[in-house]
Simulated scan of single mutants.
Amino acid sequence: MTGRIEARLVELGVSLPDAPAPAANYVPQVTVGDLVFVSGQVSMADGAFITGKLGADMDVAAGAQAARTCAISLLAQVRKACDGDLDRLVRVVKLTGFVNSTPDFGDQPKVVNGASDFLVEVLGDAGRHSRSAVSAASLPFGVAVEVEGIFQIRP
């Protein structure tokens, strides 16, 4: 039986990938009480990194799309932390978005909106969250965006 969140993803034409494996010496998510802390998820599509630097070779719309892919990976990690039952997700608590951008680029919030807007589209009010959107001189693998998150779940 498909849960309500998975059904909503299907309505939106989104298929969650398997939770991405960590790229270094860390774990992809840690559960403490009713909170799941998800490590930074990098922008990927079809198994390939979405690379670029905002303000140089990537525009805000493309950056927002890259951030959306990060949010999809965040949900995949939450699903894994919830033993496959995404309906245990209560709410998104906080996102931190890192945007690979030039020193003069100032639209990091518009880029990270790609992740925020997607989570609200999927989860409604439970997707509304606190957030930081910051510039980074570079990100792993040259990706355009990396987003980490904190999520509240039901035990």
Rank of each mutant, 00 (worst) to 15 (best):
T102F: 05
C70F: 01
L89N: 01
Q65Y: 11
D125N: 12
D107H: 04
D125Y: 03
V120G: 04
A66Y: 04
I72F: 01
F118P: 01
D83K: 10
S116A: 12
G124F: 09
S73V: 12
D104K: 08
R88W: 03
A126C: 10
F105E: 05
Q65T: 15
L75A: 04
A115P: 05
F118I: 08
D107P: 00
P103V: 09
D85T: 04
F98L: 15
S73K: 14
N113S: 14
S101I: 06
K80N: 13
C70R: 03
P103H: 02
A66R: 08
A66Q: 12
K110E: 15
R68C: 05
G124Y: 05
F105P: 06
G106V: 09
V90L: 10
E121Q: 15
V90P: 03
V92M: 15
G97F: 06
T96N: 11
V92K: 02
K80L: 15
D85K: 04
F98D: 13
C82I: 02
L95R: 09
G84Q: 01
S116C: 11
V78F: 00
R88P: 00
N113P: 00
V112F: 02
D125W: 05
A71Q: 05
K94N: 12
V99T: 15
A81N: 01
V112H: 08
F98Y: 15
V111F: 07
A126Y: 00
Q77K: 06
F118A: 03
V93P: 00
G114S: 11
Q108P: 08
L123K: 02
A115K: 09
E121C: 06
G97Y: 06
T69C: 11
F98G: 12
D85I: 07
G84K: 01
T102I: 14
V90F: 00
T102Y: 01
A115D: 10
L74S: 10
S116L: 12
T96E: 14
